[in-house]
Every structure is written in C-alpha cells, then in structure tokens.
Amino acid sequence: MHVPTSAVLQKLLSEAPPGHVSVGWIMERLEERSFGLLMFMLAVIALVPGLSTFIGVLFAVPAYQMIVARRSPALPKIATARRLPTPQFVRAVDRIAPLLRRAETLIRPRWPQSFRTTKRMVGIAILLLGLTLVLPVPFGHILPAFVIMIVALAYLEEDGVVLWLGLALALVSLSLSAAAGWGAVAGVKWLDRL
C-alpha cells in the first residue's frame, strides 16, 4: 500500500529527535523515495539565479547512482553528517507538505513497472539536464529545473505516467538547450567573420 510522501514527511516529524536531525537520518528513513526528494530539493535550489551552475554539477551524484541502479542515493559522509536543527526541519516540512498534498491530488501510483525498467534511462536524462544547468544561457536553467521537479515528483509518488511525461519534457528541454548552444557557436563564428 502506497503512503503519500506528505504523510511520510509528517511521520518523520513525529520521529525526529528534539535537538538536531542529520541529512543521513532523513535519507535513511525515506529509502527509495530519497532519490526523488534529493532531486526535488536540488531542482528547487537550481531555480535560484547564480546557483544553477553549482547544482548542475551536484546532479551528477544521484544521476550516476541511478545509472548503476543503486536502491537509494549514497552521499559523501560530509553531506550525510550535516545536521539541521529540528525546529528548522519542522518549518521546512510544514512549508513543503501542503505543496506535496496538492501535487498528490494529481500524481498517484500508476505503472509501477516503469521505475524498474527506466531507472538507468532516467539517470542519463538527469545527468544531461544537470549539464544544461551549467551552461551560461540566460534563463536557461528554468526549464531543466522544472523538468527535474516533475521527474522527482513521479519518483516520490511512484507515478509512471508522470515519469514518462517528465522524460518527454526532458527530451524537449535537451533539444532546446542543444539549439541554444548551436546558435551561440554559430553566432560567435559569424562575428569572427565580420
């Protein structure tokens, strides 16, 4: 029986120790959903202008681990040991949970076999989308970050339909990034000829 992610996060609040929670503690309790949560959090941060380049590089970690079919992401010890004060964690969950509840009215478990058969393909798509976040194209970070959020929500709620929609949008996003890159190179060559 599938438990919505918003309910899982609320359960985490009840289990959280009073002082601090570590990133490792959160990831351990989310198990397979931790891929979706990690991608979602990184994609939200990537929307902040100036941070998308750094976040684009970070996406290589979960993407590689999906390509090699890990059950859940393994982060460096320095990241998993990072502690958050429990009140700060509670505030963050209180902000995210209502948004997730709204998304859960549309996104629900469908086509679960998609996740087993496409994990490597999704990892490659996330890796390529992360690379496009690194490109210095004005506002070029918005569409890839949005697409990664859709894929992350599909992973959180085990929705194969939304996953395939996200992969189709990834193809569109990558095509637009390739066209923008080609246009920039062609423009530089044209300026050199002047």
Rank of each mutant, 00 (worst) to 15 (best):
L176G: 04
V90T: 11
L51F: 07
I107F: 06
V3A: 09
I26Y: 02
G183F: 14
A180E: 10
L47T: 05
T80Y: 08
L47G: 04
S173M: 07
G56I: 06
L169H: 02
V161I: 02
R95I: 13
I45N: 08
I96V: 13
S114C: 13
T53K: 10
K189Y: 13
A7Q: 07
P62D: 02
M1Y: 02
V90I: 10
V162A: 11
F89D: 00
K77A: 15
P4D: 13
S173Q: 05
L37P: 00
A154H: 07
G187L: 12
I96E: 11
Q113L: 12
T117L: 12
E31N: 08
W190H: 15
L84R: 04
Q65K: 10
P136F: 00
D159S: 09
R116N: 03
Q10H: 12
L176C: 08
A79Y: 14
I45P: 04
Q10Y: 12
G19L: 11
D192W: 15
G19H: 13
V68T: 09
L51G: 03
F89W: 06
E32R: 09
P76W: 06
L131M: 14
G130T: 11
P109L: 00
P18N: 14
A60F: 15
E32Q: 05
A125N: 03
W190C: 05
V57W: 15
V137H: 05
L37S: 02
F115Y: 00
A168W: 08
R70C: 04
L194W: 14
